[in-house]
Design a protein around this nucleic acid. Structure first.
Length: 542
DNA sequence: AAAGAATCCAACCGCTGTGCA
DNA sequence: ATGCACAGCGGTTGGATTCTT
């Protein structure tokens, strides 16, 4: 796990390099033929690792591959410092580098950028990485954006190393201390499911809205939560398949994957008439149709959902058994694993069942039921809720569609103490397929707050939003928000949001939330568009 | 000390998304 | 609508280094 602290090679140029003072960026290191290369297609059979770039080329333009030399680094660094980042093919052409633009970008981003933090990950960073992975899966770039000075490649390498090491040692991938506090606090005050469900049914009279990322993420979290007495063997099904050839094992795991993917995507299909990435085709989950042979796991890659790195064993951990609903999941899972044939379209697992049952209910109740069935296993007392505009479309969802500006929050966590008033915030504003978020995030949770940008219906608007479901109720830890820039915010506040609101009233988020990041004006910004007064359907909502 | 295994990590590859002509 | 260039992302590879036996 040591990361070598290597001196920036660009700083130590060989004595007789030509790229010293006054080096022009127009002299290629090699033949320097202008080529209209497609950098993706340059992987010809030239073993260019070690290619010295000195006239080896002959006719066809050949780009050097392999390790960068200090001289190349120097050229690249000088060029980027002089001309800025971007336009990497121009870099390649103008900096005298016989490297493809992609390679230049990578070299700069991973090694030459001045703001890079070298050296091994410290404990805090490791902590973050683990939490981030719990939340997002293999979203290395996203993680890197929250770890200043770190690159996605670095994080990815670290994680893969960690994964291997933990697999080998039969250690849990996610250390208990990162998960258990959720359980510690919530299991103790767990109300039996029935009563809590009833209570919640009474409490929650309005539509609950959940995003699939949360749903899936949270389900994944409770796969990972609590490793019980026995160590968990986090197993990558694909790798296990490749290395052992144990088809039945892989098949089982694929069924597990199928089990969840089917359900979740089914819910997704019903919940959102908008595509979630390319995870669904025509609203149905994508599988390669031959899980026993291909071992391909589509979901985590295509949807950005957490990687499926648990073995089936992990599903039967002790924590799951403590929760009736979770036990039901586990039962179905076992059934699924042991006799995959029993999985029919009528019996697609818990979530499918929820959906089926939910079909008989009105939209509001359906959402509520789903919410109750999915989230109580996680042990959260839900005292806050979001409110979407009423379902207005025949195909509206089990979960609910949410327009960010239409969400309201009856009660949002009081400032600086998530455990003071509520331990769960269920508010969600993520509904546009193409939306991007400039967000703040509470580590260890999937709580986000920030601004929804790039609204396809109103490009110029910035909507404040809160998203996600599980508010970490760890009173021992000061809540923090992390901006996209990786800066921790010392102060923020979730203000209550009394009554229904639409966009003009929306800012239940104090301007102090992100005000010191310069976003306050956006938070309080009045909408310019009359459309905001009315619920709108997401793009593609037919 | 030597050989093999394990680990690290830089670089590459394929793919996707976006902007633009 | 289409094709192209470009940027970026995540997975994979393979050489170098370190560790273990």
């Amino acid at each position: 796990m040591t990361v070598k602290v290597e001196q920036d090679p660009a700083l130590e140029l060989p004595p007789n390099t030509e790229a010293g003072a006054g080096a022009e960026f127009s002299q290629p290191l090699s033949s320097g033929k202008e080529e209209e290369e497609n950098d993706d297609d340059e992987d010809d059979e030239t073993d260019s690792v070690g290619y010295d770039g000195a006239g080896n080329g002959g006719g066809a333009p050949q780009l050097k591959k392999g390790p960068w030399t200090p001289e190349e680094d120097k050229r690249l660094k000088d060029y980027v410092e002089a001309h800025g980042e971007g336009n990497w093919n121009q870099v390649q052409r103008n900096a005298g580098l016989n490297r493809c633009g992609k390679s230049c970008r990578l070299r700069w981003a991973n090694h030459l950028r001045p703001d890079l933090k070298k050296g091994p990950f410290d404990a805090e960073e490791v902590d973050k990485i683990i939490k981030f992975h719990m939340m997002w899966g293999n979203k290395w770039a996203k993680m890197a954006s929250h770890l200043p000075g770190r690159t996605d490649n670095e994080i990815k390498n670290y994680w893969n190393t960690r994964l291997k090491r933990h697999q080998r040692a039969n250690l849990p991938l996610y250390p208990e201390h990162l998960c258990s506090r959720v359980l510690d606090q919530d299991m103790n005050r767990h109300i039996p499911d029935e009563s809590r469900g009833k209570k919640r049914s009474n409490e929650l009279t309005q539509e609950k809205v959940v995003g699939m990322d949360d749903l899936v993420g949270d389900l994944m979290v409770f796969q990972h939560l609590d490793y019980g007495k026995d160590p968990v063997v986090p197993t990558n099904p694909l790798k296990r398949h490749a290395s052992t050839g144990d088809l039945s094992y892989v098949q089982s795991l694929d069924k597990v994957e199928n089990f969840y993917s089917n359900d979740l995507n089914y819910v997704l299909t019903k919940s959102q008439s908008v595509p979630l990435g390319s995870a669904t085709a025509n609203g149905y989950p994508i599988f390669d149709g031959n899980p026993s042979t291909s071992g391909t796991i589509h979901r985590s890659k295509k949807t950005g959902l957490p990687s499926f790195q648990c073995s089936s064993y992990e599903f039967s951990n002790s924590w799951l058994l403590q929760c009736p609903t979770a036990s039901l999941i586990e039962q179905q899972l076992d059934t699924c694993i042991q006799s995959p044939e029993s999985m029919s379209s009528q019996n697609t697992g818990l979530l499918g069942e929820i959906v089926n049952k939910g079909d008989a209910l009105d939209d509001c109740t359906k959402s509520e039921r789903l919410f109750e069935m999915v989230f109580p296993p996680l042990g959260y007392n839900i005292v806050s809720q979001s409110n979407a505009y009423p379902m207005r479309h025949p195909s509206s969802s089990v979960i609910g569609d949410c327009e960010p500006e239409a969400c309201l929050f009856d009660e949002i966590q009081a400032s600086n103490s998530p455990s003071a008033g509520s331990d769960a915030i269920f508010a969600y504003g993520k509904c546009y397929p193409d939306a991007s978020f400039s967000d703040a995030r509470m580590p260890g949770t999937s709580l986000e707050a920030g601004f929804l940008n790039d609204d396809p219906l109103s490009k110029d608007q910035s909507y404040p939003y809160l998203s996600s479901s599980l508010f970490d109720a760890d009173s021992s830890q000061e809540p923090k928000l992390l901006t996209d820039a990786g800066q921790w915010l010392d102060s923020f506040a979730w203000k209550s949001m009394p009554g229904a609101c639409n966009m003009p009233d929306f800012p239940g988020i104090s301007s102090s939330l992100l005000g010191n990041q310069g976003y306050g004006q956006h938070i309080l910004e009045e909408p310019k568009n009359d459309l905001l007064q009315q619920p709108r359907l997401p793009t593609g909502f037919n």
